[in-house]
Computed example of a mutant assay.
Amino acid sequence: MAEVTALRWESLRQRRSPHDFIIEPVEADFTDLQLAIDVDGRLHLLVAVTADPPSLPPDLQSIEVRLVEEEGRTWLDVTARSHHEDLFTMLVNKILYAILVDQRDPATSVEATIDELRAALRPVAQELGVGEQVGLFGELWVLSNILFPSLGSRACHLWSGPLGERHDFVGGVVHIEVKTTTKADEKHEISRLDQLRAPPGRCLLLASVQLERSIAGIATIATLVDEIIAKLGMDGRAIDVFDAKLKNLGWHDGLRQTGSLLRFNLRDAHVFKVEGTFPRLPDDYVPPRGVTGIRYTIDVAARSSLSAPEVEAILQAM
């Protein structure tokens, strides 16, 4: 495969005149791919296609794709300004490799290569803060270790925390709220007036997850994500749902390589049934007029938690 270089572009410039569109095949014996420089100095790669593609890649700041008709043939005209020559040359060579070496469809090669470049230039998503990572870790741990053994891949469809609902997991009969802390005690902050209220006819469980944050920790959000995807196996629908909900919470794979990804060890985890004397505001509590938000702290250290068989029996109704 002939590689396009700065010398190739310079050769075309030397032949340019104020009124000519200078064009030549990328390879002498293959006319479906053409290089060109127009009178304004713009660089072009012309890719012959047998039919109009259903859509064209959106323009980048420096690179455009247009459909043109020349000499009775249809071409994708990939073009850039001359001062973006280095970037454009890299793009051209990747397109040529996809077509000439990988034998991919020309229109698909252009679109896929530009999409890849667009993704590489996209701003990095904002990193998750400490509190966000602690909370997400707790929800993922409960999903993988409490719900999945009883419900299988259906558990991913019940994960409602990323959707901004009142409780983190919502089933037809059972709701689960997850509270995660890295503190030494078993206290949790309740951030909504109705967070420890079960809807009529529903059972509410509180999962208390206690973590130790450590540079020697054996688990991260990434390891839990991988663990859950492995458990989902070939259930593509559940994997898509899981991935979409992770993105809603700000997770992206780029965080795996950042120094901001926290490491944890699990200290303990308990599940409580929220009923009777469980510490919370009473269901009929009405805040004073003008009070629009309430935060309070509960201590579950003295509460009796459910056993694993009891939790499993409740989840079967979820």
Rank of each mutant, 00 (worst) to 15 (best):
I190K: 12
A184T: 14
V291L: 11
A219M: 15
E212D: 07
V178A: 06
G233F: 06
R289T: 13
F242T: 02
H270G: 02
P282H: 05
I218W: 10
V174E: 00
D283K: 00
V274A: 02
Q195R: 07
D226T: 09
P200K: 07
V174L: 06
Q195W: 04
E275D: 09
P279D: 07
R202C: 02
D226R: 13
A198W: 09
G276L: 05
L206E: 01
P199C: 05
T181C: 07
L232N: 08
G201Y: 04
A244T: 13
G254N: 10
R237P: 02
T220Y: 12
K247H: 14
E212M: 08
R213C: 08
Y296P: 03
I176D: 01
I239H: 06
C203Y: 06
S208T: 13
L205R: 03
H270M: 10
R289H: 08
P200H: 10
S214F: 11
R197M: 04
L204N: 00
V174K: 05
G201L: 03
L255A: 11
G233A: 12
G276Q: 07
R213Q: 15
V173H: 13
S214C: 11
R197P: 00
V271C: 04
H252A: 08
Y285T: 05
V225H: 06
D243M: 12
K247P: 01
Y296G: 04
A216K: 15
R213V: 11
A198L: 14
I176M: 15
R202E: 03
K273V: 01
G254K: 09
L246V: 09
L281V: 00
G236L: 15
V173I: 14
A184H: 09
R256G: 05
V241S: 10
F242R: 05
T258L: 13
H175E: 13
K187C: 14
L204M: 04
P199E: 13
R192H: 11
V291W: 03
E212L: 13
R280Y: 01
S191V: 08
L193N: 02
R289S: 11
S208I: 08
Q257D: 12
T181D: 05
L266M: 12
V274S: 03
G293S: 14
P288Y: 05
F278E: 00
I239P: 02
P199H: 08
D185Q: 12
D268R: 14
P282W: 02
V241I: 15
T220K: 10
L246A: 05
V274L: 04
A222Q: 13
D243E: 15
G201V: 04
A238M: 07
